[in-house]
């Protein structure tokens, strides 16, 4: 039902009813913004990426194939735009916790930081391919299959990246004393 409504809105946009796109925004801007925010950890940049996602979707509405779910199509654009932003902003390099924005080398002040900020900082220290699977699995709660379809990689690769990413996060959190192993 929801997807049928989406497709009816798309059809009306294609027929020139620009304001109907507002319905699509109302429905999906939250989830797209949250995805971008989890990838980028900066509200302004996440808002920019969200805007790009919807502008791109609008300009490509005529390319949308109605045999697929509209949200899947939109979400794929959002994943690609978020990854593009992250890769452009950070470059492809060896990631290290100390290079992550907002991280601190001072253990004393680190302990005073909220757990949420710590987690965000550490997630953002992961390389983009690991970061996206963590965000999609743990924040967006997608299944392995859904992630594999979105990223266009085998499910086995999703699993292996997710396991590796979790282990990296564990090591970093142990190092910072946030997790007390055992």
């Amino acid at each position: 039902m929801s997807d049928r409504i989406d497709k009816a809105w798309v059809e009306r946009c294609l027929n020139g009813e620009k304001k109907v796109f507002g319905n699509i925004l109302d429905k999906y801007q939250g989830i797209i913004f949250n995805l971008a925010f989890r990838m980028i950890s900066n509200r302004d940049d996440a808002a920019d990426v969200t805007q790009n996602v919807f502008l791109k979707a609008y300009s490509r509405l005529s390319l949308f194939d109605p045999k697929y779910k509209f949200f899947s199509w939109l979400y794929r654009i959002a994943v690609n735009e978020s990854l593009k932003f992250v890769k452009k902003a950070t470059g492809v390099k060896d990631y290290d916790l100390n290079e992550a924005p907002g991280s601190t080398e001072n253990d004393q002040s680190f302990e005073e930081t909220e757990q949420s900020n710590v987690l965000n900082t550490i997630v953002n220290s992961l390389q983009p391919d690991y970061r996206i699977v963590i965000v999609l699995r743990h924040y967006q709660e997608l299944t392995y299959l859904e992630i594999s379809e979105l990223l266009n990689i085998p499910e086995k690769t999703v699993k292996s990246r997710l396991f590796s990413a979790r282990k990296l996060l564990r090591e970093k959190l142990l190092k910072k004393g946030v997790l007390l192993s055992g």
Binding site: C13, K18, L25, A47, Q51, L55, Y58, L61
Partner: peptide, 14 residues
Amino acid sequence: DLKQQIMNSLPDNL
């Protein structure tokens, strides 16, 4: 204001 910003940025005609 995100929704309004996006709506304002949409081209007038597809």
